[in-house]
């Protein structure tokens, strides 16, 4: 569903991502691993529109998305989370999630004056949807708390709920397991499995090999900005090139 062809990104110096090409299959959970500084997050940012690739093209279901702004990429059904979660700290957990559904009637300011009834009805529907996804990730109890009170792991879950309520076709998760306590990590992995079974595709950056091995088929390995190989997690883990990339020659 997502095709990257020859994607490169440099910031003036040597390229951080160099000539990377791959295809994400619909319904798959694809892993993206590699040592620190391999360019994983930069590649993510290129896919999500936060960065404009220096070269190459990216298409999502045949539509070119490279060079679009992040909000436009989101509009095409590709959503992402952040390595360090970005909740809206002063807003309630519930409204963090209510924000996300695209194309809300009341997002156009004049409809709040001209069609208040329709906006109110839509708000109630969105609130119920948001509650459903908060329930899914187990944050219902904290719905009316400001998001700043959440722990690191809960913030990851909030980001997940916030993305899910928008019903994207493809979700990019940047280290969903980083800094998450083991019981919460188990929850996050279960949620990803359930969602995937319901048809959502994922691309996941992760260092936690337990998570990668359990969820990801296939796994892409990035090292020094280049795509080293692609394969099942077991193969990848055994491959001497991968071991060398992680441990150094």
């Amino acid at each position: 569903m997502l095709v990257a062809e020859g994607v490169s990104k440099s910031f003036g110096g040597p390229p951080v991502v160099q000539d990377v090409s791959f295809t994400l299959t619909r319904g798959a959970i694809t892993g993206l691993i590699g040592p620190n500084g391999a360019g994983k997050t930069t590649l993510f940012n290129c896919l999500a529109g936060s960065l404009k690739p220096s070269a190459g093209r990216i298409t999502l279901d045949g539509v070119r998305i490279d060079g679009l702004r992040p909000d436009q990429v989101f509009g095409h059904g590709l959503a992402r989370t952040f390595q360090i979660p970005k909740p809206f700290p002063a807003m309630t957990v519930l409204e963090n999630v209510m924000l996300a559904p695209p194309g809300q009637l009341g997002e156009r300011f004049w409809t709040n004056w001209l069609r208040p009834g329709a906006v109110a009805a839509e708000e109630r529907r969105i609130r119920d949807r948001a509650r459903h996804w908060l329930d899914f990730v187990g944050l219902t109890r904290l719905a009316q708390e400001p998001a700043r009170v959440l722990s690191g792991g809960q913030r990851k879950l909030l980001e997940l709920a916030r993305v899910l309520v928008a019903e994207p076709r493809l979700i990019l998760l940047d280290e969903p397991g980083a800094g998450v306590a083991p019981p919460l990590l188990e929850t996050i992995m279960e949620k990803i499995e359930v969602l995937n079974a319901q048809g959502t595709s994922f691309l996941i950056i992760e260092h936690n090999m337990e998570l990668v091995t359990r969820l990801c088929r296939p796994v892409l390995v990035l090292a020094q900005g280049r795509l080293l190989l692609e394969g099942a997690p077991e193969e990848v883990k055994r491959d001497p090139r991968v071991i060398e990339a992680y441990l150094g020659a």
């Binding site: 909000d71 002063a90 807003m91 924000l99 709040n112 004056w113």
Partner: peptide, 28 residues
């Protein structure tokens, strides 16, 4: 009417974290 609804929510979100709001489809 404006701020206590979806429009005001988007404004608040952009104010608090523009990158996060953009990643959720809101053009700042």
């Amino acid at each position: 009417r404006l701020v206590a609804g979806p429009w005001g929510r988007v404004l608040r979100a952009i104010r608090e974290d523009e990158a996060a709001a953009a990643s959720l489809g809101k053009p700042a």
